[in-house]
């Protein structure tokens, strides 16, 4: 019954004696950091992203001493319960919403049409078209705003709602085209061919296949256009005349001191957008499950 391992005369190799010692706490700590370096960096980046938002939200509950809302004084719900104490704030938000709404509809429509032409048709002048779409995105906003103002002044056009709207549609179109084009280019052309093969004429194919499949792209383009328009300051500042949008109100108020109501509106915009996106995600997930 003698097997080689039982022969103790020769010192046997026992692998258990050679298991490396568990490293010390410091080494393990450093190793943990090294393994999670990306996660740590991501968390720090998120911290950087949310730091200003936290300040905005916190100071919306401040009761500032004097006009400047920069030093913490005491907790108060005044700004939240009385957002429109200075009616010009709410008026300016109303103006911004109106402009953003109309500009979004026009820019999304025009931009979507261009995307369809670019992705679905062959035509002369494609390169020139692409360049014309790209240039407004590559042009600094001051240049866009300034040259547009020069045009309006030359034409003697009264500055106000109309001129702001024109400017916003102009710089939103390119972003819409880029967004919708990406979605459209990712659409398998065979789906539309299959629809045509299944007795759908051009119009029905568009209505029942193309449009439903491109719609998510059009919606995100619209949201992008809305937020770009609502938030624009530089171009609007050239073409507003005496009409005050929300960013212009904030800019103007800065000289006298920004009231905490501005922080309330900033917080509302943040939480509102967050809520919309989260709800859209939940609805989307529920629909996919079904």
């Amino acid at each position: 019954m003698s097997t080689p391992t039982v022969d103790r005369a020769v010192a046997p190799f026992d692998p258990r004696d050679h298991v490396a010692k568990k490293p010390g706490a410091v080494v393990r700590g450093l190793r943990w950091v090294r393994e999670h370096i990306i996660g740590i960096a991501a968390v720090l980046a998120l911290f950087y992203l949310f730091l200003p938002i936290a300040i905005v939200v916190i100071f919306s509950f401040n009761k500032p001493v004097g006009r400047q809302n920069v030093a913490w004084n005491e907790f108060s719900l005044d700004a939240w319960t009385n957002i429109c104490r200075d009616p010009t704030i709410c008026e300016s938000v109303g103006v911004s919403l109106q402009i953003a709404f109309v500009a979004t509809i026009i820019a999304t429509l025009l931009g979507t049409l261009i995307s369809f032409a670019l992705v679905r048709h062959r035509f002369r002048g494609r390169t020139a078209t692409n360049l014309l779409i790209f240039l407004p995105m590559a042009t600094p906003e001051v240049v866009l705003g300034a040259s547009l103002l020069a045009l309006f002044l030359n034409l003697g056009a009264p500055l106000g709602f109309g001129t702001i709207l024109i400017a916003h549609v102009m710089f939103c179109i390119s972003f819409v085209v880029v967004t919708v084009k990406a979605r459209l280019a990712g659409l398998d052309p065979r789906l539309e061919q299959a629809a045509m093969d299944l007795y759908a004429d051009e119009r029905s194919t568009f209505r029942y296949v193309t449009l439903p499949l491109v719609l998510p792209g059009i919606i995100s383009a619209g949201l992008l256009a809305f937020s770009l328009s609502f938030d624009d300051f530089i171009i609007t500042n050239f073409n507003n005349g005496t009409l005050v949008t929300f960013p212009l109100y904030v800019w103007g108020a800065a000289q006298r001191g920004i009231p905490p109501q501005v922080n309330v509106i900033g917080s509302l915009m943040f939480f509102g957008a967050l809520a919309i996106v989260v709800i859209a995600q939940i609805v989307g997930a529920a629909r996919r499950k079904k």
Binding site: V56, V70, S267, M269, L274
Partner: peptide, 20 residues
């Protein structure tokens, strides 16, 4: 969503927050 959400809070307000 978390990455994009802060940017729905107005550009100017964010920049003033940095000032603080």
């Amino acid at each position: 969503i978390l990455v994009v959400a802060p940017f729905f809070c107005s550009f100017l307000i964010r920049t003033y927050a940095w000032k603080t």
